[in-house]
Every structure is written in C-alpha cells, then in structure tokens.
C-alpha cells in the first residue's frame, strides 16, 4: 500500500489512570516521511498518546515500535538514544523559564550533541530566525514573550537537533488565527526541510488540512479512521463527519466527558 517503511508502529496500546480508561487497544502505523494529523475531541487522550510514544508515560500494555525497535520499557541511556531522534512541541510550549531563549533552543545541541556554548548560541540564533524571531530576542526569557512567540521558540527547540520524527501537540491552540496560520506554515516548512516524519495533534480542522497529508481520527481511546487528508470530506465514517462538521452530538460529547461505557 505504501512504499515507505513504517516509522512508528503502535499495537494494542492501552493506558488507564485509575478507573479512567484513556487508550483502549489503539493501533496505528505511521510511514516514513508522512505528516499525520491526529484529530479528535478534547479529552480523548491525544496528548496521552504522544506522551506514551515519547516515553514520558508508559503504556499499561501494547507495543510501540520506532524504526522497528520496541521502545516500551526502555529507560536511561537507551531511551535517550531513541529520544535524540525525536523533537516535540508541547501543548503549552514548556520552555525552560530559567534559561534565556537561545539556551532553550540550543538545549539539545549542547546537552546531547556536546556543542560549545558559542557555537550553540550561533545555531540557536539561526533557528530563531528560521521561525521568524530576530536575533535581538536571543537573550530574553520565556516569561517575557507572548504565547505565540513561545510556540515559535518551542518549534525552534524541537527542530534544533534536526530530528527524524517531529511531534506537535496542538500547535495552534490558544493563539490568534493569524499567528496560527504562521505556525502552520512554519511547521510545513520545517518538516519539509528536514524530510522528517511528523505527527501533529489538533482539534483544529483548518490546521490539520494545512499541515498533514494523512489524518487519523481518534475517538474513545481508539483510532477509528485513517485516510488521506483530501478524502476526509467523504470518509464515509460517521464520527469523522460529525467531528468535521462540528456536530458534537451525545455520541462524542459523552466520550469527551469520559462518561462513555468502559
């Protein structure tokens, strides 16, 4: 079906918090070089899914393979080696607020690749310019810039080490549409330049259409539909139709509140 090898393969992924079942036997394949958007209503566990893939959380059961290597249960140096090939933009940017912007951006370069501080600073300024922030911002602190600018810096940090896989958790949430559009364009540009595999979480359909070439619909802890982004309007899937037309009937809003049957 696809000539590219599978980059990330998820099988039977399950994750619960106490009695709350967030991921329920989730399967998904992401092929190398694809840009996939995972869409779904708030609270279905999209962020939890990402955190499991990057190793911040451990699934209760199931398998996660990156480049055919099982990564569930990896810790310490083995996990760090895998994570060196990943870059992630967090939902709330999660910049280090004790460090100036340039050190945020070049964090991976200095700690994982051992670049000297002056080289790292130079690289960081380049990356900041890549996301449209000029060099004068390098010594400012995260608390002093707007949320939109923080997302840009988070993006610069994620791409700094030129990772093979990029994760974006709701890149456009909480910022105005104009800035959102800028971020979308930046993401498309960065992913293309790096030739990376990208996984974007969003509940903004506009953003999904712009960024992704494939869309996966997540609902009640499972992926219920995967397809090319231009097929989304006639997916033939009831849940996808409801989601993209904003008709959140009881079917979906129950899941959103976490009250659907276990």
């Amino acid at each position: 079906m696809n000539e590219h090898p599978v980059k990330i393969s998820l099988r039977g992924l399950t994750k619960s918090f106490g009695k709350k079942h967030v991921l329920r036997n989730l399967d998904l394949d992401i092929f190398q070089g694809d840009s996939v958007a995972i869409i779904g209503p708030s609270g279905t566990g999209k962020s939890v899914l990402l955190k499991n893939i990057v190793g911040i959380q451990t699934p209760d059961s199931g398998s996660i393979k990156i480049d055919s290597e099982e990564v569930v249960g990896l810790t310490g140096n083995a996990r760090d080696r895998v994570n060196r090939n990943l870059g992630m933009l967090f939902q709330g940017a999660a910049l280090f607020d004790s460090l100036p912007l340039w050190e945020n951006v070049s964090f991976g370069l200095m700690s994982a690749q051992g670049l000297s501080r002056s080289d790292a600073r130079q690289k960081a300024i380049e990356r900041l310019q890549q996301v449209g922030l000029d060099a004068g911002n390098a010594d400012r602190f995260p608390a002093d810039i707007s949320a939109g600018a923080q997302k840009r810096v988070g993006l610069a940090r994620a791409i700094a080490t030129k990772p093979e896989i990029l994760f974006f958790d709701e890149p456009t949430t909480g910022i105005d549409p104009v800035m959102g559009d800028v971020i979308n364009k930046l993401i498309v540009k960065c992913v293309k330049e790096l030739g990376a595999t990208a996984l974007t979480i969003t509940h903004d359909m506009e953003s999904a259409r712009r960024i992704a070439d494939k869309v996966a619909m997540m609902h009640a802890g499972k992926i219920v539909w995967v397809g090319d982004v231009d097929k989304i309007d006639d997916s033939g899937n009831e849940i996808v139709d409801q989601f993209i037309h904003g008709r959140l009937d009881s079917h979906i809003s129950n899941a959103r509140l976490g009250t659907s049957a276990a």
Partner: peptide
C-alpha cells in the same frame, strides 16, 4: 517532560 524529550 520536555527535558526527557531532549534526551536529558
């Protein structure tokens, strides 16, 4: 969490 995604 961001620290560990940066392999630190």
């Amino acid at each position: 969490d961001a620290l560990s995604t940066l392999a630190t």
